[in-house]
Design a protein around this nucleic acid. Structure first.
Lengths: 170, 170
DNA sequence: CACCACGCAGTTCACAGTGGATTGTCCGAA
DNA sequence: TTCGGACAATCCACTGTGAACTGCGTGGTG
């Protein structure tokens, strides 16, 4: 009822629900696929937001399916809230890179530690980039140009990380 | 006493304390300057971790200064814990980009909204990149090559974001 | 010299985000 | 038929965030 402000997670869920009703699990999967590479989100969050969204009237419950799965559909009020959220001031980017944090204390590492760190980071970003690139291609094929563009951001991120790694003072 | 695992924040604080004793406020300022661009950290966290670190024996309290300021010094156990943390498995990168999240739902925006979003993002990343670059230069001048390299990561991030923005389907 | 306004060190709170452990249920293979 | 595994959902402890608040010092003004 109360026109409570949406947090970004709730807004993302409402955005996804524009495609049609989904259960928590489906929302989670969809978020992982479409937003995961540049917007982290956990199961716990999804299952906490959904009842809250229902309370606020932004989402309507469908008939429970198998395994207590519960479909949710966006309501008119939900669409309004989502549209309003689009105009809200942007929060800051959130960036926490554990490799960089360790590099910042590089003097306190042994050479061996640094080498292992480097190697691990290389592998991590390489596969993450491949995943993002793949997801972007899929989205593109589905005609979702905006979704694809968003995923390309993640690709650019990992690419930048790789380039940075290769210039590191070793 | 208990050899409790360090979380990343606590580890960062211990790392900073290798430079000598500091109060919470000084630690906060130092973290902002040296780690802020790639590792967000808030006052609340710092002031929550410090007593915890003291309880664990990783940090020793000095004589209170003016305004209840409380200096902390790293202990031998603290240095050991920090060293151990360096070898711990890396967590995942955390990345949450609010602009990209909105772009992913681009079809649900108006053209005007998209233009404003674009403009705002451009400004944000431009100044953030300049700040990071500046901080990196300062660190470099101070002879902190690792610190400088770490800050260059933030520069690379914002640079990638800017390049991505410019290729966006408008 | 007295005053007090401002600013800083530190605290607290409510809420958001994370990851691991747990519960219950359905399905399909032995 | 029953058992094991997969999956939806829930729970919990801890971590992270931003804003509001306290209380003390210092420096400028009169």
């Amino acid at each position: 009822m109360a026109e409570s402000q949406l947090n970004a997670t709730a807004a993302a869920l409402l955005g996804l629900l524009h495609d049609g009703p989904m259960t928590g699990g489906q929302l989670m999967a969809s978020a992982q696929r479409r937003l995961g590479p540049f917007w982290s989100m956990t199961r716990s969050q999804v299952y906490r937001e959904l009842p809250a969204l229902a309370d606020a009237g932004f989402v309507r419950l469908g008939k429970p399916g198998p395994r207590a799965s519960q479909p949710y559909a966006i309501t008119a009020a939900g669409k309004r809230a989502f549209t309003k959220w689009l105009n809200e001031p942007l929060g800051r980017d959130q960036l926490r890179n554990p490799v960089t944090l360790r590099v910042a204390f590089g003097e306190l590492h042994s050479a061996k530690q640094l080498r292992e760190l480097y190697q691990e980071a290389l592998e991590y970003h390489t596969t993450a980039m491949a995943n993002a690139r793949n997801a972007a291609k899929v989205a593109s094929k589905e005609g979702d140009n905006y979704g694809s563009a968003a995923l390309e951001f993640a690709v650019a991120y990992h690419k930048a990380a790789l380039a940075w790694l290769k210039k590191l003072p070793s």
